[in-house]
Design a protein around this nucleic acid. Structure first.
Length: 278
DNA sequence: CTCACATGTTAAG
DNA sequence: TTAACCTGTGAGC
């Protein structure tokens, strides 16, 4: 779940549920207990996401930095009659009489200063979900790098918020092999990819899913009539190893790059200058 | 039921 | 490079 769209969605949910309200803050599991005690009873100002990082602001310039990592989750419940007892290992719980939010399994949950928050944001590449983001900052890195585009897209210092699903799907939609060196891209290709990301990720925030298959490529439209595997959305190649490409029918390929799985179609995303593995 | 693996990152070795 | 984080899901028995 947690690519950038998830965090932006959660920021909206937290803001809707708690912004401007005095809240109770606790750490049933205990690991955030000291910080929670400092925040308990304070007004929650709002929540904002930058890439995959989430910042929950409390009165007095206090920020809780949350990173869900691979397995973390944050559930927000509004308009409840009663706040239930926590279930499982709840690192952070925020409550009002009619709403509660539970954080579990996160990589990071820390109280940070505005300076620490600003510094972290400054190290991040542009986030397609933030309107002020400048795609040229990412392009300056990509165009000068011989590293594979598949690696650059996942580097949060180059681009903030893209994870393995958006990476795989973006590269497919732009017919680009994941191992193609960044410095072989043309600026027009990058601009098209950025525009696409902005659109796809905003849709992801709206729907809470990652859907990337164009209507003309759905199995029904292609006359295949098969079901689509559901990985929380409708996708071209992500986790579809060995299954037929929705466009050309060839089996989807996979490889490991930087300890993460790549997925691509060797016909739709051809190799580039024979450097890459086909 | 148990097991492997996952949309991520950091720190230890 | 590997383990750790610590949860959820799906496959296999």
């Amino acid at each position: 779940m947690p690519e950038g769209h998830t965090l932006h969605r959660l920021a909206h949910e937290l803001t809707d549920a708690f912004a401007g309200r005095r809240v109770r803050v606790g750490s049933p599991q205990g690991r955030f207990a000291d910080s929670a005690a400092l925040l308990d009873g304070q007004v929650l100002v709002g929540a904002e996401a930058w890439g995959k990082k989430l910042y929950v602001e409390f009165h007095g310039d206090r920020f809780v930095y949350v990173h869900l990592g691979l397995i973390g989750g944050l559930d927000v419940h509004r308009d409840v009659d009663e706040v239930p007892a926590p279930v499982g290992q709840v690192r952070l719980r925020i409550t009002t009489p009619t709403a509660y939010a539970d954080l579990r399994g996160a990589t990071a949950c820390e109280l940070v200063t505005p300076e620490q928050r600003d510094a972290a944001i400054a190290r991040m590449g542009p986030d397609p979900l933030r309107p002020e983001s400048d795609p040229n900052r990412a392009w300056d890195r990509i165009r000068r790098s011989r590293l594979p585009i598949g690696r650059l897209l996942m580097d949060q210092g180059v681009l903030a918020g893209v994870g393995n699903v958006y990476r795989a799907e973006l590269l497919f939609r732009h017919r680009m092999h994941p191992l193609r060196p960044g410095n072989t891209l043309r600026v027009g290709q990058w601009r098209a990819m950025w525009e696409d990301l902005v659109e796809l990720m905003h849709e992801g925030v709206r729907t809470g899913r990652i859907d990337t298959v164009r209507p003309e490529h759905t199995p029904e439209a292609m006359g295949r009539g098969a079901r689509i595997d559901d990985h929380g959305g409708e996708v071209y190649v992500y986790r579809r190893t060995g299954q037929p490409c929705h466009v050309c029918g060839r089996p989807v390929r996979t490889a490991v790059l930087d300890a993460r799985n790549l997925f691509w179609c060797s016909r739709c995303q051809p190799t580039f200058r024979s450097r890459a593995v086909s």
